[in-house]
Design a protein around this nucleic acid. Structure first.
Lengths: 196, 196, 196, 196
DNA sequence: CAATAACCGAGACGGTACGTCTAGTCTTCCC
DNA sequence: GGGAAGACTAGACGTACCGTCTCGGTTATTG
C-alpha cells in the first residue's frame, strides 16, 4: 500500500476542499481558463499550494473537480415515451454544459485530450455514465415495444447530445433557445429510431 | 493606405511560410498540440523565431494558419434533394474535422475561445462560411418547394454538424463510421425540416 | 518593516548562493565577461534561472556580487612612515585588481557606469572604502608631523592608485612588475605630499 | 587582394560617413553606450544598416571611430624642460579622455578587451602612439642632460596618465580640476625621473 | 551610350540571450 | 501528519539586438 497511513496524524481540513473549489470557480469566471494559475487559486483560497496538490494531482484534475462536480447523473423518471425520456436526458446534460463558461469547457477538453490517461478516465466515467443513462432509456423503449431492436448507444449519444454541444460550445448560441433545441432533437432522434 | 509598405525592403521568403506550416504540422502529429513549442518549430523549419513572429502574432495564430489552411468551402453541386445536399455538406465538414488529430482541434478551440478577438475571427470566417453554404442549400430546397419557409440556419447547422463533431471529438469514435453517421443525420434533419 | 518576512516559508538555500558564485567565477575565467550567459551559470550551478533572479535583479548585480566579494578593506598596520603606509595600501589594492582577468573588470566597470543606481552603489561602497583607508593613513602622517595640512583624499587616491590601475587594465602590463611600480608610486606621492 | 575594385562603381557617399558619426554621437549622449543600437543609428542617420557595415565591421569599430576620431597625436612643442613637456602631453590626453562621457569610454574599453584582436589593435595603435610621443619627450630630456638614462616608457606612461585616467573614469571627479591634477602629476613624475 | 560594378534604403533573415512566468515539488517552522 | 509560506527545478514564452542578406533601384566609371 502506498500513500499516507489512514487515521493517523491530523485529518484534512474539509473547509479547505470548499475553499479550493470556490476559489477555482471564482477565478475561472474572472480570468478564464487559460489565465488561471495555481498560485492564484492558493492565494485566493488562503492556503498553500501543497494543500491543493495533496488533493489533486494536476491543475486539470482540480478544475475538473471544481467544475464537473456532481457527475452522478441518473436515468430520468419514466415519462412513458422514448421521446419524453430522451428530451429529459438532453435537457439535463444541456443544463450541465451551459453551467460553465465555454472557455472553461474548451480548456478542460483540450487538457483532457492532451493526456492519454486523463482522456481514458474522462471517457470511462463521464461519457460512460451518459451512455449508461441512455442505455436505460432505450431499454425502457424496447420493453414498451417502441423499438424493434437495440440501437447503437454511441450513435444515439452523438445524435442527441451533439447538436446541443455544438450550439453551446461552438456556435456560442443563445442559452434560452437550448430548451427548444433539446425538444427538437429529442423528437427527431426518437422518430428516426422508431422508424428505422 | 494601411498594411505593410509595398515593394520596399527585402520581401518575405515564401519558402519560409511553407517551412513553418510543414514544421508545425509535423510536430503537431509527433508531439501533440500541448507539447508544440515555438523553438521546436523554428528549429525544425531551420529558421529563427523572429521569422515566425513576423508572420503570426501568437502561437495560436500560427497553428490556426497551419491547420485550418483552405477555408474556401463551397456549396456542393445540386444533388436534386435537400437530403442529398445536406449529406454532401456534412461529409465535407466531417472530412475536414477528421483530418487533424483530436487533441489539435481541442487545443485550437480552447485557444480560440480563450481570446475574445480570435474567437470573433473564427466565428466570422469559419463558422460564417459554413452557415453561408448551408444557407445556399436551404435556398435551393425552398426554390424546389421542399421547404415551406426558411428555417434558422444556425439551428440547422447545430443539428447537422453537432453529431459528427461530437462523434469525432468527444466520443473519439471510429472514423469509418462517420460516413454512415453523416447519412443518418442528413436524412433525419431533412425529414425534420420538411415535416415542420 | 521592509524586506522579506522572517521565519516564514522555506528559507533560501545557502548552498545555492555558493553554487552561483562559484559557477559565475568559473565561467568568467573560461569564457570571459561578454560570453557569460545566465543559462550557462544556471546549468553549471545545477539550478534554475529563477533561483538566480530571486537573488539578483540583473546579470550585472550577479557578477558584481560574485567578483567584488570581500570589500572589507582595512587600514594597514602603522609602518611608521607615510611612504610605508601608502605602499601597503597600494600593494593591497593592486593585488585585488590583479586577481580578476582584465576583461572582467572592464566589463564590470562598463556595466556599473551604464546604470545610475549601480554606479552610485559602487562609488559609495568600494571607492568610499578605499578613500576611508587612505584618510586614516593620512591622519597618521598628520599626527606624526609628516604633513603640515590634510590633502584632498580624492587627489591622493588618483595619484596613488591611478598608475597601478592603468598598468594593469590599460597597458595590460606584466603583473610581476606591479610591486615595484607600487613602491615607486608610493615614494613619489609621499615626497610630493610632504614637499607641498 | 580581396574587397571591391578601386575606382569602379558608385563611390561611397561622404555625407553618409558624417551622418553615421553624428547619429552615433547624438545617441551616445542621449541613451548611453549600452543602449545604443545599430538600428537606432541607421534610423537616426536616415540610412540603411548595410551602409554602416560597409564602413565598419562591428558596432565597436563604429563607436570607436565616432568617438576617438583624431588619433594623430603629435609630440608637443619643446617647452625647454621635461616637466613642461610632460604637462603638455598629460593635458592633451586628459582633454581627449574628458571629451567623451565616462560610460562610453568604459563600454568601449570593455568591448576592446573582450576581443583579443581588437585589444591588440587598440594597444598597437592608440597606446603605442602615446608611448611614441612620450619617448620623444624623454629623448629630448636625455639630450638636454636632464636625465642620466632612458627610463621605461611604459612605466612613465602609467605614472603620468594613470592618475588622470582614474580621476576621470573611476572617481568621476570634477573636470575642472583635471588641469591642476595634470600639473601636479607632471611635476611629480619629472622630479621622480630626474632624481632616480 | 550601354554595360558594369559598387553603392543606396528598407527590411527580412538566423542566431542567441534576455528576464518573466508557470507547473509541480520540496523544505522550513508551526500546530 | 496537516498546513501556510515560499524556495526550488525545468523549460517555454515573446522581445531585442547583432551582423548578414536580398530586394528594387541609383550613380559613377569603363569599354
Amino acid at each position: 500500500m502506498t500513500g499516507p497511513k489512514q487515521n493517523v496524524g491530523r485529518p484534512r481540513d474539509a473547509q479547505i476542499d470548499d475553499a479550493i473549489v470556490r476559489a477555482t470557480r471564482e477565478l475561472l469566471v474572472e480570468r478564464g481558463y487559460a489565465k488561471l494559475t495555481m498560485d492564484a487559486v492558493a492565494k485566493r483560497a488562503g492556503i498553500g499550494k501543497a494543500a491543493i496538490y495533496r488533493r489533486f494531482a494536476t491543475r486539470q484534475e482540480m478544475i475538473f473537480a471544481a467544475t464537473v462536480h456532481g457527475m452522478e447523473e441518473q436515468p430520468p423518471p419514466d415519462s412513458g415515451t422514448l421521446r419524453g425520456d430522451l428530451a429529459a436526458v438532453c435537457r439535463t446534460i444541456a443544463a450541465q454544459l451551459g453551467a460553465a463558461p465555454p472557455d472553461v469547457l474548451h480548456g478542460l477538453l483540450a487538457d483532457i485530450h492532451a493526456d492519454q490517461a486523463l482522456g481514458a478516465r474522462f471517457t470511462g466515467s463521464f461519457i460512460g455514465r451518459e451512455q449508461y443513462v441512455l442505455g436505460e432509456v432505450l431499454d425502457r423503449a424496447l420493453a414498451r415495444g417502441e423499438l424493434a431492436a437495440m440501437p447503437d448507444v454511441r450513435v444515439v449519444h452523438a445524435l442527441l447530445i451533439g447538436p446541443v454541444f455544438f450550439w453551446l460550445l461552438i456556435l456560442i448560441g443563445d442559452r434560452e433557445q437550448v430548451a427548444a433545441l433539446s425538444a427538437t432533437v429529442a423528437e427527431s432522434v426518437a422518430d428516426s429510431l422508431v422508424k428505422g
